[in-house]
């Protein structure tokens, strides 16, 4: 029985040579995805990986699953069709910040709103790589790129904020350099029934090198990021002595044992709380005054689209019980010519 079969990352690799630039963060991410899939244990032939266009969207070619490299921005709509047509499949969508949030922004917010059971891997390098270096919807204000030679004069999207605006039920974040965390959030996304968005901050060595180094560099990472785990205290720092507390309506990073703060003051992460206010505050922490949140920030049970669709079809079929189109037609207004 394949249900009892166990898989290794190797089972999810294709025979294709990986063509991303040497040093690109995508290499680590595809490895993490294959590891996560092995951990989840759904067979490669019951897994479909759908992408749009961009460097990250080449990923399906490197997977030993069913895959579809589609058109710019439309991965979400196509993945939705795959999942709706066959809810038995585990569907992954792979996208970048341009593909997902610019040209595909409409599909993205609607698949999240619909809460369709797709695992969405959003690789955010804050730049267009495949078209060679234009600013994306997540590029920081003022950034000089090929299409903004004097700096951008617009604010970026923060993907988490869009997800919460679209009433998302799952949001998690990782860094390309944190393989274990990436595997962890991807596996959690697969376990979540509904649209599960995993943002992985990824480095583009060619066009946006070190854009995430402020939080991702080894020397600073422990102090500028926090790994959230459901049911655990929000603690971070090299010494593991820093914590997140509530200060009025705001979050604050404190040192335990200083200024009168004790471990009791430190918040416990509740990813399952339907109310998203605290999740949003956590997701908006950016590594400056407050550490950037990694791990599963929100993971809430809610009705998901495909289960509801299947349920409704079965419910209506149960009531009417037509065996064929002809039987249905004959149940309506007809007359006989003899």
């Amino acid at each position: 029985m394949e249900e009892n079969k166990t898989y290794t990352a190797q089972d999810f690799k294709s025979d294709q040579y990986v063509r991303w630039c040497p040093g690109c963060g995508d290499h680590a991410i595809v490895n993490a995805l294959q590891k996560a899939m092995a951990e989840v244990g759904v067979a490669p032939h019951k897994t479909a990986v759908i992408s749009g266009i961009g460097c990250s969207s080449r990923l399906p070619y490197y997977m030993g699953t069913y895959g579809f490299h589609t058109i710019h921005g439309r991965g979400g709509a196509i993945a939705s069709g795959v999942k709706m047509a066959n809810p038995e499949l585990t569907v992954w969508q792979v996208s970048g910040d341009g593909d997902c949030l610019a040209i595909g922004g409409n599909h993205f917010i609607h698949e999240v709103r619909r809460n369709i059971d797709i695992n969405i891997l959003l690789m955010n390098n804050k730049i267009y790589g495949l078209t060679k270096g234009q600013y994306s919807p997540t590029t920081d204000r003022g950034s000089v790129t090929k299409s903004s030679p004097y700096g951008t004069v617009e604010d970026p999207f923060i993907p988490a904020e869009l997800v919460f605006g679209a009433r998302g039920t799952f949001f998690a974040r990782s860094l390309d350099v944190e393989m274990a965390t990436t595997v962890e959030i991807l596996a959690a996304a697969a376990a979540h029934k509904g649209a599960a968005v995993c943002e992985v901050l990824q480095n583009c060595v060619i066009f946006n090198h070190n854009i995430h180094s402020y939080v991702a560099d080894k020397e600073v990472r422990a102090d500028r990021t926090i790994h959230l785990r459901h049911g655990e205290k929000m603690i971070f720092g090299k010494e593991n002595n820093r914590g997140i507390v509530l200060d009025g309506y705001m979050l604050k990073a404190v040192t335990i044992g200083e200024d009168g703060y004790t471990m009791d003051d430190v918040l416990v992460h509740d990813a399952k709380n339907p109310n998203n206010v605290l999740h949003q505050m956590l997701a908006m922490m950016d590594g400056h005054d407050l550490p950037l949140a990694l791990g599963v920030i929100r993971d809430v049970d809610a009705p998901n689209y495909t289960d509801e669709l299947t349920r409704q079809v079965e419910e209506v079929k149960g009531k009417k019980n037509f065996k064929s189109l002809r039987e249905y037609i004959l149940s309506g207004d007809t007359w006989e010519v003899k």
Partner: peptide, 14 residues
Amino acid sequence: IAGACSAIGAAFAG
């Protein structure tokens, strides 16, 4: 666009 794309996804899925 999503109308056509979801249909393409459904076709891919059989």
